[in-house]
Simulated scan of single mutants.
Amino acid sequence: MAAASGYTILDQRLDHYKEIVSKKKEEKDMTKGFLLDFFKILDPKGQAHLAQDVSGCATDELLRLLVKSLTDCLLGPMKGAGGKTSSNPTPMVPRLGIEDSIDNMVAQDHDPVTRGAQKALRRNCMQRDGSRCVASRAWQNGLENIPDDDDTANLEAAHILPFNLGSFNRNDSQEVLKHANTWVNINRYFPTLKTMSFTSEHLNAEKNAMMLDRTLHFEFSAFRMCFVATGIRNQYHIKTFKDIPSQALKCLPTNRLATFQSHSGSWELPDPELLRIHAQLAEFFHMSGHGERIDKILRDYEELGVLASDGSTNVEDLLAIRLSSLPLNVRERSDSESKPSGKHPLSKEQGGPSENVRPRSDSESKASGKHVAPKRGGQQPSPSGPENKP
């Protein structure tokens, strides 16, 4: 019933949305489809929050900015953008409640996760998973007394929710703020994590990791593979998507089933809820090419470094993605603030970004020189870093 109500609220607002028309196919306005698809993969409480946020957007520009916020401070980090998509000041969002406010999240003073802790994580998961890949069942390469007919592989400790979500410089106020924005979005749309008391400090916990063949680790981190619960305790169907390489498919068992069990130690098995959220995100990234568009935006940062000379760089997306957060509950504003006032919808009076993050004109962009391209951890050959090497 809640989902049906959410759909009604969502449809009522999106029915009035006017798409931006572009002659270029790759620049098609996907705002409406993006929000409808994201709604589909959420649980009822997350759906209710998204419906509330969408209906609270008084202008179409705010709806587009909501999509940019979700990309920059939720989906981008999940894809591996980490905390560094922009060096510009991050706009604040209105309070969603004391416990969910940006200020409160910053005040919790979470410690960043470190690569050093991954050595212990790898050791513990290797023992728990019996020195075997949980998907392919291949043994860790180099072990003795392995049956002749069994496969071996270089195994790595694969995070379920990515390490990037907890990686930031606590001495950099903008990175701290970006981290807080991201986790406010995560808790708002995936509220079971908050119920579990799962924070960025738990990303290196054993329940958020498992041993995977290096090839499968890369595909899992890229959301081209996920684990879907079968209804049998600790048993999962290994679901793959059409963009996964054929070489990775050869690593998987023919029945596409994986059963998690503890072979040694008392460490928790991969958490079903974390695996479910990963699977929900994998589904979204493969709806209508949303994942491909997000990847392209992130590649523009990482690979180009400067605006392309042929004008192919999506400048609007590169600039808009810098807006790290959108007023998620516009209804918390007063009626006078929500009504059109003749001012730009993102003016300070309406809670938008300050003038120092306004989009620049063409002449300003040409004169500005290079765009610094931050590196993304999720696109490295070994998604979890050097500590994961066997």
Rank of each mutant, 00 (worst) to 15 (best):
Y7F: 13
I9Y: 09
L10C: 00
R13Q: 04
L14G: 01
Y17W: 09
E26T: 07
D29C: 07
K32V: 15
L35Y: 13
I41E: 08
L42S: 04
V54Y: 14
S55C: 14
E61L: 10
L62T: 00
V67K: 07
V67A: 06
T71W: 10
D72G: 12
D72S: 05
C73K: 13
L74E: 01
G76V: 01
M78H: 00
A81K: 09
T85G: 08
S86G: 11
N88P: 01
P89H: 15
T90Y: 13
M92I: 12
R95K: 12
R95G: 00
E99S: 05
D100Y: 06
M105T: 15
P112S: 02
T114S: 09
R122C: 11
R122H: 13
R122V: 12
R132W: 07
R132G: 03
R132M: 11
C133V: 07
W139I: 12
E144C: 15
N145E: 10
D150E: 06
A157V: 12
I160E: 01
R170F: 09
D172N: 04
S173F: 01
V176K: 02
V184F: 11
F190D: 02
F190S: 04
P191S: 13
P191C: 04
T192I: 14
K194G: 11
S200P: 01
H202S: 15
L203S: 01
N204C: 15
K207L: 14
D213F: 02
H217M: 07
F220A: 00
F220E: 06
F223V: 05
F223A: 02
M225T: 03
F227E: 10
R233S: 09
N234R: 07
A248L: 04
A248Y: 07
C251P: 06
P253F: 12
T259D: 08
H263R: 04
W267Y: 05
P270H: 01
P270Y: 08
A279I: 08
A279D: 02
Q280I: 13
F285C: 06
M287Y: 07
G289P: 05
H290L: 02
E302H: 13
S312V: 03
L318S: 00
A320P: 02
S325Q: 15
V330G: 15
S334Q: 05
S334C: 09
S338H: 06
K339I: 12
P340G: 10
G342C: 11
G342F: 10
K343H: 15
Q350H: 11
Q350E: 13
G351V: 09
G352H: 02
E355N: 05
N356P: 00
R360E: 03
S361Y: 03
D362V: 05
S363I: 00
S368T: 05
K370E: 14
H371S: 04
A373F: 07
G377E: 02
G377R: 15
P381C: 05
P383E: 06
P386G: 06
K389N: 06
K389G: 03
